[in-house]
């Protein structure tokens, strides 16, 4: 059965409804809890096994020893493919993924994040 303009009813009904799209920069969608977003590193937990470095498909992690059993991580977020394999590989849960997804940067340098190890906690230093 052919009916010309079959969608007319549907489109007219929708013309009075609010749009389905989000007004993005002003309204941000909420990501689910286990979203594979930006990775954060906890230097206190790291034991320096470098499993994450070994498994990272994009070679985006460097772990450096900065003292006795103290490690700091350097992330190349421009290379990271956000697969979160490092989170799975880490035996001590030193790496966690966050819900943050707005990761675009104008300067490539801003994508290089170093998590310095400090005695009194974690300081994130975006400078290389």
């Amino acid at each position: 059965m052919k009916i010309p303009g079959k969608m007319a009813k549907e489109v007219l009904r929708h013309s009075l409804k609010p749009p389905a799209t989000l007004n993005y920069p002003y309204v941000k969608p909420e990501m689910p809890d286990n979203f594979r977003g930006k990775i954060v590193f906890d230097p206190v937990r790291c034991i320096g096994c470098r499993m994450c470095v070994k498994d990272c498909p994009a070679l985006a992690i460097e772990i450096a020893a900065v003292g006795d059993k103290k490690f700091e991580a350097r992330f190349y977020l421009d290379r990271c493919i956000y697969c979160a394999q490092c989170v799975d590989s880490c035996p001590k849960d030193a790496l966690l993924n966050t819900k943050e997804y707005e990761l675009a940067q104008i300067d490539r340098q801003n994508h290089r994040i170093t998590f310095h190890a400090h005695a009194d906690g974690v300081v994130v230093d975006p400078a290389p």
Binding site: E10, F35, Y82, A84, Q85
Partner: peptide, 25 residues
């Protein structure tokens, strides 16, 4: 426009189950 709007339902479901909308990992 309509089919892609409805596709968002399954995309969001995939994000919920796998952690991302594309490349589920």
């Amino acid at each position: 426009m309509y089919s892609w709007r409805d596709r968002e339902v399954v995309m969001d479901l995939l994000a919920l189950l796998c952690g991302n909308r594309v490349n589920y990992g």
